[in-house]
């Protein structure tokens, strides 16, 4: 659906050159929700803006539906952009137009007939749940409602892809949830492919099928959300996961625990959660596991359980026990600092 090949982008600011993207390749499949996560300044916005050429790559190719979009003339590029909806952190609505007109005006400018405009505007305002606020102006709406209008505006063009540049970053957690629900609905019920960027791990976990981790203009890791977040290989990914998902242990408690055994972080994915692995281990290896902390993360299609476990016992036995856990489809990570 969307394919970026060896895309680089360099901004010149005076004499300085800023390499915002360095040889980035990503592919977004039709029908999926693909997320890019990275810290501020990683180049995420630049990347997503290359998909509809709001930003032109310095080098590399961008394909949408197999078409090399940099080779399109002006008119065809405008047409292509109508197939690609986009929403933003700042909503970007017309302040001088009410909700209805914010959705209808772009359709009018596109040359769509009056009846069709009315039908689509009503349909998509209904889908985002704002039909009864048609006459309100953006200044009278909450952030979440404004983002809903922006989503309706994007959907009204009946695009195949929706690009989202930090659509939930300015919203509180509850509103973020409801917008993410809406995006899931858009993906599932309307079959629209979603390409989003975010700096929030939660957004990736909640709705994405696949994820790319971005750092300083490069994609450092790509894969399914479950894989990337349960078995992160790159330092940057680990940092994200640990920043948000792992348990923080106060140093004094940690010192006591480590003196009497080993600390392990266990991640259970889907089916492995039902396996009584800890009990079996305790019995078989004669060690004493105690649970220090635990939690569960809901991903799009499955849940991931996390346990911080202290295993007390003989040095040798403890090592064997950890080895056993690793063989049971549990992601085991020894905590050593």
């Amino acid at each position: 659906m969307i394919k970026l090949q060896h895309v680089s982008k360099t901004f010149s600011v005076g004499k300085n050159k800023i390499e915002a993207l360095k040889d980035v390749s990503v592919e977004v499949n039709r029908g999926e929700i693909f997320g890019v996560i990275g810290y501020s300044g990683a180049g995420k916005s630049t990347l997503i803006r290359c998909v509809n050429l709001l930003e032109r790559p310095t080098s590399g190719k961008v394909f949408v539906d197999g078409v090399d979009i940099q080779s399109l003339n002006k008119k065809d590029l405008l047409k292509l952009r109508r197939k690609i909806g986009m929403i933003f952190q700042g909503y970007n609505l017309l302040e001088t137009a009410n909700v209805y007109d914010n959705v209808a005006i772009p359709l009018k400018l596109e040359g769509i007939s009056g009846d069709e405009i009315k039908a689509r505007t009503e349909k998509y305002l209904e889908i985002v749940g704002l039909k009864d606020r048609s006459k309100a102006y953006p200044s009278q709406l909450s952030g979440g409602q404004k983002q809903r209008v922006a989503i309706a505006r994007a959907l009204a063009h009946e695009p195949e892809v929706l690009l989202s540049d930090e659509a939930t970053s300015a919203l509180d957690p509850n509103t973020t949830d409801s917008i993410l629900e809406l995006l899931l609905k858009v993906n599932r019920e309307l079959g629209i492919t979603i390409f989003l960027i975010t700096h929030e791990l939660d957004v990736i976990q909640r709705i994405c099928d696949r994820v790319a981790v971005m750092d300083k203009g490069r994609i450092v890791e790509t894969g399914s959300v479950v894989d990337v977040f349960t078995r992160p290989t790159e330092a940057m990914t680990k940092q994200f996961v640990h920043d948000e998902a792992r348990f923080r242990i106060p140093p004094t408690i940690f010192k006591d625990l480590i003196a009497t055994g080993k600390l392990v972080n266990l991640t259970f994915i889907g089916e492995s959660a039902k396996d009584p692995a800890l009990a079996t281990m305790a019995k078989r290896y004669d060690v004493l596991p105690s649970i220090i902390a635990g939690g569960i993360d809901q991903l799009k299609d499955q849940s991931i359980g996390n346990l911080l476990v202290h295993i007390k016992g003989d040095q040798g036995k403890v090592d064997e026990a950890i080895h056993f856990l690793k063989s049971r489809q549990i992601v085991v990570e020894e905590v050593s600092e």
């Binding site: 509809n52 709001l54 590029l77 405008l78 047409k79 292509l80 952009r81 109508r82 690609i84 909806g85 986009m86 933003f88 700042g90 970007n92 609505l93 017309l94 302040e95 001088t96 137009a97 005006i105 772009p106 400018l109 596109e110 922006a150 505006r153 994007a154 063009h157 690009l163």
Partner: peptide
């Protein structure tokens, strides 16, 4: 006029002359 709004309209495939009149001048009218 907020640059973001102009970009949103560019991203919807609206031509520059239409953006000038229906977005920029409209938003700046006050």
């Amino acid at each position: 006029v907020n640059r973001g709004v102009i970009e949103a309209y560019q991203s919807m495939g609206i031509s520059t002359p239409k953006i000038i009149w229906h977005v920029i001048i409209r938003e700046a009218r006050s």
